[in-house]
Amino acid sequence: MNRLFAGALAAGALLTATAALAQTGSATIDAIVKRGELNCGVAGTSPMFSLPDSQGVMRGLDADSCRAIAAAILGDAKKIKFIPTTTQNRFTALQSGEVDLLYRSTTWTLAREGNLGAMFASVNFYDGTGFLVKASLKVKSAKELDGATVCVAPGTSTELAVADYFRVHKMKFTPVLIQDLSELQNAYLSGRCDTYSTDSSGLAGFRFQQGPKAVEHVLLPDIISKEPLGAMVRKGDDKFFDIVRWTYFATLIAEEHGITQANVDEALKSTVPEIRRLMGLEGDMGKALGVDNKWAYNAIKQTGNFGEGWDRNVTPYGMPRGINNLWNNGGLQYAPPMR
């Protein structure tokens, strides 16, 4: 009888064990775990967001956002493969499964979410379309650009925003659309275009790259569109969507509570309920997402909180935090409570 009971217990344990294994219920997470690394689609050419440094290590806000997810799922931020994509092939790369997610300074729009079979899980950068002009042109506002030639990357939401802006203000413009970013920037620098338009973060980064010649270029004050940039995942895998979104929220909550890469181990001794839940000490938050309870601890320990990522990647380019501050600091970055 006892034996039978023990056998039944063992069988039950086995059943629950397999149930626990299959609990992720996410084909994407299962594939990532099996592969042992996260395939993250980035630009790879974009200062502030993703650009390899002199050692070939991918640096930038998008790169670090991806590393946090690798740390959350696999426990190691280094278990990641960055796959450079262009503005033209990024969605195909996501749809076909070549990348698990896109962190490629991609704007969240209705048409993209409706038509592409993909959805946005986070906004790690609230941006807006701006214009860069040569100081010698003596243009003070985008409204003076009637008749100008505008350099824009094709297939971007900037392209549509610029067309809308000129249409609303009843102005004319000639677009020069070149897919390759450096060719496009060359066309602007040589004076083929009067102005170069993209997300103002991109313009600030480009201007910074000009070094001492940065003063020859002026960022016009007009921001003509909302460009919320963030992570894009395939539809139909809600569990993976959750983990991407909540990893981003976790970095925000960590900043809110002043938890940094340096002091995250002290936070393990905290008595504040939300910090304890964030650190995986109580509440089984990780289990609810289908990953280890230490997911957020790992992410913060290895990549830091949101503000640290910003200071590391964006501040050097002279871009003010502005609307990307936390909500209690006058910005838009806001995370729902972790409970």
Binding site: Q88, N115, G155
Partner: peptide
Amino acid sequence: NTMLNQTGQA
């Protein structure tokens, strides 16, 4: 290319 990028109809 631009069309398929804006509409997603690759």
